[in-house]
């Protein structure tokens, strides 16, 4: 299972901060997340960045059981 971290507004839209999914690529993980969380999450995801293990990557990047995919909506820090 690949870990999915959901931060800030993505956490709120999904209703969870951390979840697990089966998929071969980031795209497959995100498709499964959309199916699980629904419309509000889909809207947040559309404007979010997605990182793999703390770094930006492309959404067709392969993932494995030890990997951590992170959904990062636009930030408002400081």
């Amino acid at each position: 299972m690949t870990t999915l971290l959901l931060l800030g507004p993505a956490r709120e839209a999904a209703g969870v901060a951390r979840d697990e999914f089966v998929g071969a690529t980031i795209d497959e993980i995100l498709d499964a997340a959309i199916a699980r969380y629904g419309e509000a999450f889909t809207r947040v995801l559309a404007v979010s960045q997605v990182w793999l293990n703390g770094e930006a990557t492309s959404r067709d990047a392969p993932v494995g059981p030890q990997d951590e995919v992170v959904v990062l909506p636009p930030i408002s820090g400081g």
Binding site: L7, P73, G77, G78
Partner: peptide, 13 residues
């Protein structure tokens, strides 16, 4: 540092 922090650190308020 403060400018880079605000642009590069994941943080939501």
């Amino acid at each position: 540092c403060i400018d880079a922090l605000k642009r590069s650190v994941p943080m939501w308020k």
